[in-house]
């Protein structure tokens, strides 16, 4: 009873706060910084997509930080869920339905191509490295769902991930060397023209690197989540292997039963 009253009071308080914020309204005029972005952004970066020039150029360091955060989280997940040694499992558990398999065969290539399109055209159209990388990773997810035993090219993915991260830093340092500030969009590549794919200076390079990095990281995360082996302290190791797989199928049956109940 007390808990319900407290919940009700909290809800009313949040609603009141929301009303107060609603009364504050949204500003109709641009601030000093945003006016600079809107008026000078295209002239300074030649990126038709202003959001991209803010994300990659004006706030490029923040983007580097975001990529680092993602890298650390994926590393943490991979550390906790170590990859299982490859061993044969019963085909029934790993076989997806015919529809999923055929659909994956048809759709994986267009999905990945679309992801690459999103991050390569990040400076012209909406989207960019993170979105494109996520779309590429969803293509990998479809691949994994269709064939659970498919081995991803882990060496290639690790190399892509490390090299693109490294090249991001190198691009930033090149800006520091040539133009005097980290990730400067000046001097490294010429500022191109509007609506040209090869334009906007260093922005498409960085977005391609981010796209590759995010895509391989998210794909590795999905892979390690789907078949990694939990390395819990102590008893975790003993329960690994076949027992774990058996436990999973049992869980699946229980789930169905629970759903009907």
């Amino acid at each position: 009873m007390t808990r319900k009253v407290v919940t009700l009071i909290a809800l009313v308080a949040v609603a009141g706060l929301f009303l107060v914020l609603l009364r504050l309204g949204t500003p109709n005029e641009l601030g000093t910084v945003s006016r600079h972005y809107v008026e000078r952004g295209i002239a300074e970066n030649r990126a038709a997509n202003l959001v991209t020039s803010v994300v990659v150029n004006y706030r490029g360091l923040d983007t580097l930080g975001e990529v680092t955060v993602l890298f650390l989280s994926v590393t943490g997940a991979a550390f906790v869920l170590r990859r299982r040694e490859r061993k044969p499992v019963d085909a029934r558990a790993s076989r997806a339905s015919e529809i999923v398999q055929t659909g994956a065969r048809l759709l994986v290539a267009p999905i990945m191509l679309f992801g690459v399109y999103i991050f390569v055209h990040g400076h012209l159209t909406p989207g960019g490295g993170f979105q494109g990388g996520a779309v590429v990773a969803s293509g990998v997810l479809l691949l994994l769902l269709a064939d659970r035993e498919r081995e991803l090219p882990h060496g290639l993915m690790a190399w892509l991930e490390s090299l693109s991260g490294f090249a991001f830093i190198v691009a930033g340092l090149a800006g520091l060397w040539v133009a005097g500030s980290f990730l400067a969009n000046r001097g490294v590549l010429p500022l191109g023209e509007w609506n040209r794919l090869l334009s906007a200076g260093i922005i498409p390079v960085i977005y391609t690197l981010i796209g590759l990095k995010v895509g391989s990281e998210l794909a590795a995360l999905l892979d390690v989540m789907m078949r990694g082996e939990a390395v819990a302290a102590g008893h975790g190791a003993a329960r690994s292997g076949g027992g774990r797989r058996g436990g999973r199928t049992r869980g699946g049956k229980n789930r169905k039963k629970g759903g009907r109940r």
Binding site: V51, T52, I118, P126, G127, G128, Q131, A134, V135, S138
Partner: peptide
């Protein structure tokens, strides 16, 4: 009018 954010939200 935020297609970038919409794409991120839909994909992630």
């Amino acid at each position: 009018g935020a297609p970038d954010v919409a794409m991120t939200e839909a994909a992630i």
